[in-house]
Computed example of a mutant assay.
Amino acid sequence: MLFPRTIFFLALLALARTNPAERKKAAICEFFHHVQAFQDDQWEDSVILMKRLLGEMITALLPYPEYAEYKESMQAYLDRGKSIVKSSSVQEKMAYFQGFNEGGDKPMLTGSPAKKKELTRPLNNFQTNMIFNVLTEFHKKLIKAADDMERVVRLSDNSSMGELFRLLDQYRKEGLGSLTENIASRILALKEQYECV
């Protein structure tokens, strides 16, 4: 029991002896590193959910020949997604995730309420999963990383350091919403200002 306490004390002592400016910069750079990882995870999860949605929609459309052309376009897009893998860039993942909605017309769903419900179920599942499993998870991770960073950065003077902190304050006030989708890109655009590699 004494050994872990000694290590913890030595770590605190080493941290206390570092230059406060260096400690702040290290905390900010670590925050940027975390945001990059969160963004990678967010888009990886988004692509996985998009592929699942396409697969479920294709299955739901099978009994309806009137949607054959739309089903084929979904299958082609799903096949195209095989080239988007974990090691693909964030830009490739974003383009794939957003690309299907940008291309082609969507058919009007006609028929009974039961048919419409069956055909919209995959989309409803997708939206629920995006909100609760991707965006909410990203939001929680980002807020925790921001809190951890700010404990170090604001420790001595209790002040913020520019645009990054204004953006984080705005994000906290808005919560899940319009900022959620592009917050990582907006934060990472500030990385060079803080001279983080």
Score class of each variant (00 low, 15 high):
Leu2Asp: 05
Leu2Lys: 10
Phe3His: 03
Pro4Asp: 09
Arg5Ile: 14
Thr6Arg: 13
Ile7Leu: 14
Phe8Ser: 00
Phe8Ile: 06
Phe8Trp: 10
Leu10Cys: 08
Leu10Asn: 03
Ala14Phe: 14
Arg17Tyr: 10
Thr18Asn: 00
Thr18Lys: 11
Pro20Val: 06
Ala21Phe: 15
Ala21Lys: 14
Glu22Asp: 11
Glu22Val: 15
Arg23Ala: 13
Lys24Gly: 08
Ala26Met: 08
Ala27Lys: 05
Ile28Ala: 02
Ile28Leu: 06
Phe31Val: 07
Phe32Leu: 06
His33Thr: 10
His34Ala: 09
His34Arg: 15
Ala37Pro: 00
Asp40Glu: 13
Asp40Phe: 09
Asp41Trp: 15
Asp45Ser: 12
Asp45Leu: 14
Ile48Ser: 06
Leu49Asp: 00
Leu49Pro: 01
Leu49His: 05
Leu54Met: 13
Leu54Gly: 01
Glu56His: 08
Met57Asp: 02
Thr59Ile: 11
Leu61Ala: 03
Pro63Asp: 04
Pro63Ala: 07
Pro65Gln: 10
Pro65Ala: 12
Glu69Asn: 12
Glu69Met: 08
Glu72Gly: 04
Glu72Lys: 15
Ser73Met: 11
Tyr77Phe: 13
Asp79Cys: 00
Arg80Asp: 04
Gly81Glu: 01
Lys82Ile: 03
Lys82Gln: 10
Ile84His: 01
Val85Ala: 05
Val85Lys: 13
Ser88Leu: 08
Glu92Gly: 01
Lys93His: 02
Met94Ser: 02
Met94Leu: 12
Ala95Trp: 07
Phe97Glu: 00
Phe97Trp: 08
Gln98Met: 12
Phe100Ala: 05
Asn101Ser: 13
Glu102Met: 13
Asp105Ala: 15
Lys106Ser: 09
Pro107Gln: 06
Met108Lys: 15
Met108His: 10
Met108Tyr: 11
Leu109Phe: 09
Thr110Gly: 02
Pro113Arg: 14
Ala114Arg: 07
Lys115Met: 09
Lys117Leu: 15
Leu119Asp: 01
Arg121Tyr: 12
Arg121Ile: 13
Asn125Glu: 07
Phe126Asn: 03
Phe126Asp: 02
Asn133Lys: 13
Leu135Tyr: 15
Leu135Ser: 07
Glu137Leu: 12
His139Arg: 11
Lys140Asp: 04
Ile143Gly: 04
Asp148Leu: 05
Arg151Gly: 05
Arg151Val: 11
Val153Pro: 00
Leu155Ala: 08
Leu155Val: 03
Asp157Arg: 14
Asn158Arg: 12
Asn158Gln: 08
Ser159Thr: 09
Ser160Thr: 15
Ser160Lys: 14
Leu164Tyr: 05
Arg166Leu: 11
Leu167Ile: 07
Leu167His: 04
Gln170Asp: 12
Tyr171Val: 00
Tyr171Phe: 13
Arg172Ser: 02
Glu174Tyr: 14
Gly175Ile: 10
Gly175Ala: 11
Leu176Gln: 10
Gly177Pro: 02
Leu179Arg: 06
Ala184Gln: 02
Ala184Arg: 01
Ala184Tyr: 02
Leu190Asn: 01
Glu192Arg: 13
Glu192Lys: 13
Gln193Lys: 15
Tyr194Ala: 01
Val197Phe: 11
